[in-house]
Simulated scan of single mutants.
Amino acid sequence: MNRWAGLAAGLMLAATTAAPVMAQEPPEGFVWYVLRELNDFGFDIEDPTNRPGFITAIPAGVLVPVDLNGDARSDWMIAWPDSAQFCGTGGCRRSLYVATDDGFRRVFDRQVLEMSIGRVEGEIRIEAQVHHLECGDRPEGCLYAWAWTPSMQAFDERPARDGWSRIPLAAPLIDSGEDDEGRPLLPDNVPDALYAEVEATRSACPAPGGGGWYWNQAEVRDTPDLNGDDRRDWLIYPVVTCTAPPERGFGLWVTGQGDSVALAYQAPPGGRAEFEVSHRPATVMVVPGCPTDESCPAVPLQWNAAEGRLVD
């Protein structure tokens, strides 16, 4: 049994032990989606006869019923096959869908090196080993953990079983991909104010050495809850323009009434944000940019309700 076959078996075991899930056939939509992805990979638009044999059956262990939110309805995991189509240096792709009253909603879709699902401290958690570039100052092979949080209807960061609770933001739980022109797409739930901020930074820059262009824009990410309202908050990393570094650092935005957001902290240039998630709301750790031969201590920020901002 190879590593990923063993992992798929382990995931199936974790799915059955995380919470009671009635075994059932996957919905037809999932079957159609997986078969489409498997068959599209071998399609040659220049010569449609140049292709492998047509796949008509889902490989064993690819569609797995799981319970991600404790409501006793079957959610679904797609443990995509171990192949160049779905795997890379960051591991293999795993997709999770939560059942809703209207169908299913995608809540996790990215590459991971390893993954497990189970109950920890009364919560259903997923834990994944990620690419070392997502580990920050942690040892290579670090783990990230997320728990399903009913108030958010989303997965929220938790300390991993290796004891680490101060984390940089890993890659998004869902890779939104790019549009037809190669511009990174933003998640559907990005607030309008932040969408406008990112749109204002978009520019096409000439590739170094000539030979084309690339899209440049600020990066927006959701973060752990920072102001105690049980909702995800937001971070924007500034864009490096085509010719110069940014004039300001990252910005932290917190949710307010309705769909409103407000800037709660603007960092100076050169630093990054990490999050202490051993308690809720999370504490922001501002890590300043420092020369490589110096040690610069991080500055913790916590929510000050009276001032409506994050303060040290």
Rank of each mutant, 00 (worst) to 15 (best):
T255Y: 08
R93K: 11
I78F: 02
M22W: 09
A60H: 15
G177W: 12
W80Q: 06
L143H: 01
T292N: 06
G118Y: 08
P187S: 09
A306W: 05
F30Y: 13
A160L: 08
E140M: 09
R36Y: 15
I174K: 06
R3K: 07
V190T: 14
R158N: 04
D259T: 11
P281W: 06
D188M: 07
N69F: 14
A147G: 00
V299T: 14
D40R: 15
G163C: 13
D293T: 15
Y195G: 10
A244N: 06
M1W: 14
D67V: 07
R161F: 03
P297K: 07
A204V: 02
M77F: 11
D259S: 09
G88L: 11
A196H: 15
I45G: 09
D47N: 10
W253E: 11
R106F: 02
T201C: 03
D82E: 14
C242L: 10
C205H: 08
V21E: 01
A170E: 01
V98F: 02
F86H: 04
A79H: 11
G182H: 05
W148K: 03
N39K: 13
W213F: 06
L263N: 02
E307T: 08
S165M: 10
V220T: 07
D40H: 15
S260T: 13
W148T: 04
I117Q: 03
A218R: 11
F30E: 12
R231D: 05
R248P: 02
L263K: 09
V286P: 03
Y265H: 06
M22C: 07
E247R: 13
A57Q: 12
R183L: 15
D188T: 09
L35N: 12
E199D: 12
N227L: 00
R161V: 05
I124R: 05
G210Y: 05
Y237H: 08
D222I: 02
A267P: 00
M22A: 15
I167Q: 01
R202A: 12
A84P: 07
R125A: 05
E181P: 05
D71V: 01
V254Q: 01
A57M: 10
P184Q: 00
L252S: 06
L186P: 00
P238C: 09
G42F: 02
S116Q: 14
V261M: 15
